[in-house]
Design a protein around this nucleic acid. Structure first.
Lengths: 218, 218, 218, 218
DNA sequence: AATGAATGAGCGTTCATTCAT
DNA sequence: TATGAATGAACGCTCATTCAT
């Protein structure tokens, strides 16, 4: 047993036909995220989640019949929430560069939240041992890069599709990589702003430098 | 049980005074890394390590009296190995920019190995729930940034200390962030070379652009 | 939990006053038998029965308030059905020996049905750990032997009551014993006919051989 | 999960390399049989076996790493014991008919032991839901019938092979069928002797009556 | 150095049952 | 009638660990 398994059916609707049950199921998912963050996936147990959610193990398993089902539902929800937040960033009516700066800033500062700092490394680790989680993750980052790509294209419409995708990949990967260094409780957290400045400058240069980025002469 | 604990004593030398015992302990450490990579830390058990190493659980516990001791020794070894490899990169006698390019390339291409791709996310995850591991990690990345910083300073000696450190942080974090995207078995792996090109250009521009990186005018 | 318990009240009528309710309860009993046969009593659970019957666990427990109640009702029904079938055999108007042969044949061939092959061993096993089931079983086999006894007496009216009962016991027990060998899916199933021939001959000889069966001289 | 699974490897040797371990493993098997008889397979749990054997659950699982392994070892042992006893019956130097009578008597009276009365119905039930157990059972009864067949042939050498096998099947099945009626604690137990007389007479007639058993004229 | 014996805690899961809706 | 919510106990099993051999 290597952890989360592939999902057979897509439970679009959460368990809980009665109103009480629905809020209970939500509570459980909140608790699940809290436990994952507090204790890590290697200490993510149903009993802990039940405790955190304030119900009994047997009752938790009434809502989520297996650990896998709970983990899938939890990932579903976290990723959907994350994508929804990404969507809201895009909708601002700023000029291209300011929008880009705003996006980078939002993503970067989000690293500072405990939730993001701790949750995502768990996700990356899980994805390395579970295809379903890997697929979830790819879906999420795909959407992430689409958003970045659109902003990039607005700044430099001359860029080809493929290059936009590669730049978006570089930018998104670079930002994610800061999780372990400027995230919540991390040693470089106090310098988030300055690193954000470097990052933004570097990303903008890349976006503007054209189809074949030419390194400035020595 | 909340995972890896702080270490009481510092085992500079591995147990086993005989040549054979030394080898045995190292076999175990190799097996431990293999298990961590294959199954993830949430499935990292002493029994599995013993199986992988070809000895009995009781015997394994003779070499490493607790799970924590084994994990610490394993991290010690992996990080030492990693730092040794970093040191070797530096020792090449190239001109500043070529050396920098070489460093970036080496680090980047290393992401493609299964070992790196899978091991480091486990480390990041672990560090979020264990101070000792966090300290190990910081030590490792500190050395990593020193190396990068030296190379950066050679290219642009006008940069201040603090700024060098920040640029090194940005670069190292950015590279690490690519683990989940261009690493072994990852969806963008085929485009490693192109992304490496973008990254190198972007990093070099940043290094050259001076104390206060100014984003080029629109 | 030590399995089926003694029954407090005798539910002569199934729950459900409406025609539909009556049908539902019978559906459940059919499902219960199906589950018992498919999975064995050690895997006989209310959830499985509910699934098989196409209703929810909560609803099933409306019809049968406990597992014991369901098991008792199921045994009641199966045994009643079995006794009814036995009664029909008797009613044929053949001459004594032909009737006897017909009875033996019917009982023997019935072993071949999956239902009989699997259900009865479960019953025997259960009876060893539950008095109520043992009582059911004894009632059923008592009627079985009465039927056989009547047929035996018609063939050889000289036999005493006790001897008739003993011969009937031997015959019925012998037939039951073939369940595990010539029953549905059993290795000797293909030879049912021949074994039936041996059995019938042996039984008839016994019935005819008088009050004190004397083994023919060597 | 439908109970006992097929066995991958044949553990000819019981667990327990140390002397202490070996006797412990035997204790566990004894306890397992006791639990099976006392509570039935549907209440056969590792915790109960551990209690009965006077060790802890964790230790029991050191000897038998799974429930299946325990059940297989238990069946192995019981069946081997049974076959050994059968073998001893045969070795008596009586004349053919007396030997046959002795065999029948031994088998019949064995039904009276609680062990036999309760154990075998569990075995029959299990065999209906598990191939491995079915194979065990067939192996055991095959040997049983060989023994009977040899005795039958000594009495009536004119019988063909196939007929001997069929008669042996009939006899063995008939005897087994008495388990539920004259076994330990069963209602007809007091009449075991008389039924044994009927059975022996009937079987002997069958054996002697020649290749095509002809039912005596009406 | 190496292995087995033994423990106690905890795991995910299943279950019969009760109660509210 | 019918269903979901909730409970508590037990299940087989895995685990890190300690101790004796």
């Amino acid at each position: 047993m290597s952890g989360v398994q592939e999902r057979q059916t897509a439970p679009k609707t959460l368990p809980g036909t009665y109103a009480k049950g629905r809020t209970r199921a939500e509570d459980v998912l909140d608790a699940a995220v809290a436990v994952l963050i507090k204790h890590g996936y290697h200490n993510f147990t149903l009993r802990r989640v039940a405790d955190e959610a304030g119900l009994r193990l047997g009752n938790l398993q009434h809502y989520f019949p297996s650990k896998d089902a709970l983990v899938q539902a939890m990932l579903d929800r976290v990723i959907d929430t994350y994508l929804a937040r990404l969507g809201r960033i895009q909708s601002s009516g700023l000029d291209p560069e300011d929008q880009f700066r705003k996006i980078i800033e939002t993503l970067f500062l989000d690293l500072n939240t405990r939730r993001t700092t701790v949750f995502f490394p768990e996700l990356w680790s899980l994805a390395n041992h579970n295809r379903q989680v890997a697929a979830y993750m790819e879906r999420m980052y795909g959407r992430y890069r689409e958003l970045l790509g659109a902003s990039i294209t607005r700044i430099n419409p001359a860029l080809g599709e493929k290059q936009v995708r590669q730049i978006a990949l570089f930018i998104s990967a670079s930002i994610e990589g800061h999780t372990m260094f400027v995230g919540h409780g991390k040693p470089w957290r106090a310098q988030t702003e300055e690193v954000l400045g470097l990052a933004t400058a570097s990303f903008l240069w890349l976006v503007r430098s054209g189809e074949t980025p030419v390194v400035p002469e020595k």
